[in-house]
Design a protein around this nucleic acid. Structure first.
Lengths: 273, 273
DNA sequence: CGATTCCTTGAAGGTTGTCAACGTTGGTGG
DNA sequence: CCACCAACGTTGACAACCTTCAAGGAATCG
């Protein structure tokens, strides 16, 4: 297990993809996934040290499979602010978002001694020449887009403790699919500064929220070990429906945003959907 | 002009795409774009009223081309919070992110009487059967992912006035490519509440930032008209390098984030990029 | 011209950032 | 083994940014 980019239980597309994709396209996506998997299988495994730069805007990027270790995509500003745009866990494909671009838009840095397999950029045209592989790349990109949008919405509308809960739950779900969670516990090789860079918070405030979740007996985060103690309340927090404060029930009742149309009032048509 | 989803000046891929994609893939992408364009051309144009729901998580979605009018993708929470995940302007393709999914993950709402052309979901397998079309869909998705990530990073690390500047500049650039900007001015059919939902701010604070940009003579935003008065300073704000405060120069020198590795110190290899 | 939605402004309070200091951990070399 | 150092974690006090609450004015629409 974990020796392969896709978990074994489905011997094909991740069960998640199987459940989420259009049934008509399933066969095609599964074929595309097999083709990409094959291409990776032919590539030798290399070991990248911590802090190695895997992708940078200065050079066209290859496509990588992260077998072991973690990686982060980072954006930095001139004044020292920085954000972690995406977190890659073992089993992820790195570089899909830059596969079609001449230059990647930001930097990917290795976070632990990592095992990496690489498909050279030169091989891309041939791979994309098969429609199933191209469709599968589109699937990977759609997944990436959805993760990015979820993160943006968290940061836009969630409070600090909800953001942290959402992130920890999200990683829990992703790692569980890759069989990297044992007994509600997983390894998180990020510093609190880096967690802050991902959630739009400062180290200091991340630290407070970590303490809060621990005191509330929801999640223990010590050093690099995450231990989930109350999955139900974690889910509530991460979906924006829970709070550690008791009076939150009251505030939950009054809507905060009134300017947005309520859906399904003026329906467009029946079949346009 | 504007009668077509892609601007006329390149009679092919948008100049932006031409500049950004891998040269090897350009021909393929251009072909895919032509194929998609043809599919849209066969579809009749329909008119959707304001507040119509174009896509909702309850039904599989089709693929739409927005010829006139605007649309927004919206996510809402039980307690009334809401976020505008994406803003669609004339010329955009709507529904790419849900093209491969059985169910869209959120709702798309029309914002002005809009002209829309629709490719039925049933036609997707045939379209994706051509590798160039599938690759072009992947390109569209990669663009969408990058927009989502940029927005997330704005909200994570920018202050309110910078976020507003970034949004106004981004729309300016996008509309300019579609020839919808006349003399530094364009139409923005969003309420301040909706701008807030996009930027993670309240109406009240959006209003203050609008006033600030007006008082600083950077941008006028009155009713639904945006008038850019100082493009240079707008770009500075939107890139996080400017501020209306003079003492910002000092604070710009001290880094705020120290926990992130500096790139290019430990290079991985030469050819892995 | 009512009625609704949107914009605008002020005052007060809360969440989060800033600053500063200290404790802890882990690695390195004497 | 200990001293040292650098990176990371932790905490408190204070300030800033942004939100909440409230109310009135302007615009838009039927």
């Amino acid at each position: 297990m974990m020796d392969d980019i896709f978990p074994a239980e489905t011997d094909g597309l991740e069960s998640r993809a199987r459940a989420l994709c259009r049934p008509v396209l399933f066969e095609d996506l599964a074929r595309g996934e097999r083709e990409l998997r094959l291409a990776f299988r032919e590539a030798p495994t290399r070991i990248a040290p911590t802090k190695a730069v895997l992708i940078s805007p200065e050079h066209p990027s290859n496509l990588h499979a992260l077998r072991r270790g973690w990686a982060c995509r980072i954006r930095e500003w001139a004044d020292g602010r920085s954000a972690i745009t995406e977190i890659y866990v073992p089993g992820d494909v790195i570089g899909a978002e830059a596969a079609l671009r001449d230059r990647p838009s930001d930097t990917v840095v290795i976070h632990q001694p990592a095992h990496i397999q690489t498909i050279e950029a030169a091989a891309l045209p041939r791979l994309l020449g098969r429609s199933s592989t191209a469709t599968y790349l589109a699937w990977l990109l759609a997944e990436g887009q959805q993760r990015a949008e979820r993160r943006a919405d968290w940061i836009a509308r969630f409070e600090a403790h909800e953001r942290l809960a959402a992130m920890l739950l999200d990683l829990y779900e992703r790692l569980r699919r890759r069989e990297l969670v044992t007994h509600y516990s997983y390894n998180l090789p990020l510093t609190q500064q880096q967690i802050g860079d991902h959630l739009g918070l400062t180290v200091v405030h991340v630290n407070r929220m970590v303490r809060l979740l621990r005191e509330e007996k929801i999640v223990n985060l010590d050093r690099q070990v995450v231990m989930i103690r109350d999955l139900r309340r974690l889910r509530l927090l991460a979906s924006g429906e829970g709070s550690s404060e008791p009076e939150a029930v009251a505030s939950r009742l009054k809507p905060r945003s009134l300017g947005v149309v309520e859906p399904a009032r003026t329906r467009f048509e029946k079949d346009e959907i």
